[in-house]
Computed example of a mutant assay.
Amino acid sequence: MEENLQKEIKLYHQKLQRLESELSLLYEVSNAMRTTLDLDEILYIILTAITAHAGLGFNRALLFLVNEDENCLEGKMAIGPGSAEEAGKIWSEIDAERMSLEDLIACYEQYKNNPSQLDQLVKSIKIPLREDGGILALAAMEGMPIEVLDEEVRSKINDLILDILKADYFVIVPLKAKDKVIGVIFADNIYSRKPITKDDIKMLTMFANHAGLAIENSKLYQQTLYLSYTDSLTRIYNHGRFQYLLEETLKEAKEKNQPLSLILMDIDNFKNYNDNLGHPAGDEVIKKIAEIIKNSSRKQDIPARYGGEEFVLILPETSKEEARIIGERIRKRIVDYPFKDKEIQPQGAITVSMGIATFPDDAENKKELIEKADLALFAAKNKGKNQVVIYSIYLGVK
């Protein structure tokens, strides 16, 4: 009887130790997530805690978030080795350096600058949220954990994403915020082949509940930032954000010794259109022109509403001639667009005038660059409008 009592006490102590360890881990990770509102950094903290030996200890962790607009799951981040050899090397280095969970979380910048093959693969994945979307979609739609822990169950699952990931035994848990599924976490032990236990799944589920709230708070914060950065009418950057981004891109241009061009645009005779047709009609023109500018720009270009009927376009790594070509493309697309009642305009169409200035040819700083582009725009207006003018130091403009 005494022997049985000792066994029970030992078992009880083991359970207490495990519970203490689990609570300590949740506390540490929750504290780490509270230090940032950056979504990618929060995702990194979550997945690091799932994969670290000082955390939940899974070999790989993948995180997908729901995209409500496209009704799909989007791969957002993954942490884990790409091979058994790489796994052994990474784990040996971590052990040798005695890296704690806090140490691994502090490696976010290093991770961000050196994305793994697994991370790149996962970020290319989109899974439709429908019945034939596969097991990850099923977990999101049902809002329940899914465990595949033996060969018999795995053999019954035909899923392209699992085949791509070469996944055998794994667990998927939903990420929830206020009882709403916002994503899923996939975790497995592909290299160590360590069995996934009920305690592992319980801890992962508990952890996912905390993570879901942190992710939702971050998304709400980013939405608030987005609204503060963008013009409410056109949904492109506003004047304040333009000023900041021009400063930053100029710094980068100086560091890399590369040109940067700026196009300042103004809708010609816009007051005439507004006075005759009213502000709602004018707003529609402004929105469409912003859309044309955005759709006519390259991926690296930064369009913004400068104010009123004026727009700007920041063109990194772009010479004067390249800027002129881009400007002409935008100008022609605006002229050709069938704006409602465009015939009332003096030129029989909605048109824009543009001025271009380039760093370092025309200016060394933000203030000078804007002033030179504005001078070129003024010349375009004086020359008859509906044209692109490049700043020239010799003639003022040409």
Rank of each mutant, 00 (worst) to 15 (best):
T358Y: 05
K256T: 09
F242P: 09
A323G: 07
Q223R: 14
L162H: 03
A87C: 09
A304L: 07
A49F: 04
A290Q: 04
S192I: 00
E147F: 03
K123I: 01
E364Q: 15
E85G: 04
E310M: 01
S192G: 00
D40S: 09
V148Q: 05
T48A: 12
A49R: 05
Q222G: 02
L246M: 11
L260W: 06
N365M: 04
Q110W: 08
D159Y: 08
K156Q: 14
G308K: 06
I215C: 08
P316D: 06
E85S: 11
N189P: 06
A211L: 01
A140V: 10
E131H: 13
S21G: 12
S228N: 11
H53E: 15
Q6R: 15
I286K: 05
K15P: 00
M354Q: 15
I172A: 01
L43E: 09
D40E: 15
S218P: 02
A177R: 05
L262T: 04
E368R: 12
Y337T: 10
L160H: 12
F339S: 09
S100N: 07
I263T: 04
S228E: 05
L47W: 07
L47N: 11
C72W: 01
K340C: 02
L204F: 05
A290K: 05
Y237C: 06
D132K: 12
I185Q: 04
I42F: 05
R18L: 10
K166Q: 14
R331E: 08
N295F: 06
A177Q: 03
P81Q: 04
K166H: 12
Q6F: 11
L73F: 07
F170Y: 15
I334Q: 10
E97M: 09
D95G: 00
S392R: 09
Q345H: 04
E97C: 03
W91E: 14
D159A: 10
D374W: 03
L138I: 00
S100C: 06
A357E: 08
Y12I: 06
L56H: 13
R298C: 07
I157F: 04
I196R: 07
E252W: 01
A357L: 00
P195Y: 03
S124N: 13
I267T: 06
D40Y: 09
K126Y: 08
H279N: 06
D374A: 01
R154D: 08
S83A: 07
E86R: 00
Q14H: 09
I390Y: 00
A373R: 11
A177N: 08
A253L: 02
L225R: 13
P259S: 11
L260I: 10
D95K: 15
K254M: 10
D40R: 11
R130E: 13
L162M: 14
S24R: 15
L225P: 05
A304S: 14
E131W: 07
A32G: 04
L375I: 08
A139K: 02
N31K: 15
E152M: 07
N113G: 11
V312T: 15
M141A: 03
L73I: 11
N158Y: 11
Q120M: 12
P195S: 06
G143R: 05
N189V: 06
Q6S: 11
R324P: 01
L104V: 00
I42T: 11
A281K: 13
H279P: 08
E68W: 09
N114D: 14
K198V: 10
E255G: 05
S116G: 10
I390D: 11
K251E: 14
L118F: 01
T318P: 09
Q120I: 11
D361A: 12
S124L: 04
I215L: 03
